[in-house]
Design a binder for these strands. Structure first.
Lengths: 139, 139
DNA sequence: CAATAGTTTAGAACTATTCTAAAGTAAGAG
DNA sequence: CTCTTACTTTAGAATAGTTCTAAACTATTG
């Protein structure tokens, strides 16, 4: 008989693939983050979600884990709001709408949007990434 | 005989023009901000600069003033770093290089850079602004 | 299954920012 | 000028998000 539980096999694989020990906490967070399509979370929102599901994970671990996932290339950080840090499960080429009223992010596929005319960076520096944030509001 | 002091006349005018009472603190900060060309400051950096010149202005006032100037349209906020808020004296159409290693901003004129293909925003929302941040690093 | 290297955690600490309420000041009226 | 009043400034407390610390815990290896 098999225990009734969320399918965590994929999460374990994914963690092993990037060299992260698949601890209970990491597996649970990875399951939440990567189960469905692309997601945008803050440490707090993910912690609340996990807690709401009865998972016991400290906020510190959520922070640690989000950063580890980011370094491992499973997540990407998005800077749109001076007061919170967002993490995006979509690590591919894309940009964002930021709904300023509610603090929500919506992906814009990389193929749709184009940035032209970026000048040469100052000597000795190279472009790491070009981020586009389309800030939208009610009205 | 005229007192030897920084020329604050312009600053006073500028403040009056946007309906802000030209108090000593606001005049001094405006003088620092708008004397030379475009500048990018954080509350802390501006406070340090003022203090270094012997000006007595509390950090709280620097924060208040930066926000008032922003609401009045004299400054613009730039979000590039999750941990600090930057204010830009260039309120016109332009974008930024962000030197991640040192936390410095460099303007990219609005004429040089173009963003094409921004999709229609979700129903009921309208585009407030399109921000482009070109993140660069050593190497 | 023991050893150990890596992980989690509670709580303290930190950083940037905002708030509070008391003291100070610019501007207009008289 | 000087009074009055509304607006400002300020020190310090408070807050929010995040990071740090060191002790307890656990996955993995031998």
């Amino acid at each position: 008989m098999v225990k009734v539980r969320r399918d965590t096999g994929k999460a374990v694989e994914r963690l092993r693939a990037v060299g992260l020990r698949p601890t209970r906490q990491r597996v649970e967070l990875a399951s939440l983050l990567f189960r469905n399509g692309d997601r945008h979370v803050t440490a707090e929102s993910l912690h609340d979600e996990a807690s709401g599901l009865g998972l016991k994970i400290s906020l510190a671990t959520v922070y640690n884990t989000l950063h580890q996932f980011t370094h491992a290339g499973l997540l990407r950080q998005v800077v749109v709001d001076a007061s919170r840090g967002y993490f995006d499960t979509n690590t591919g080429d894309h940009q964002h709408f930021f709904l300023e009223d509610e603090g929500t992010l919506i992906d814009i596929p990389g193929e749709e949007i184009t940035v032209a005319g970026v000048p040469q960076p100052p000597a000795g520096l190279s472009v790491d990434r070009v981020d586009v944030v389309v800030r939208v509001r009610r009205g």
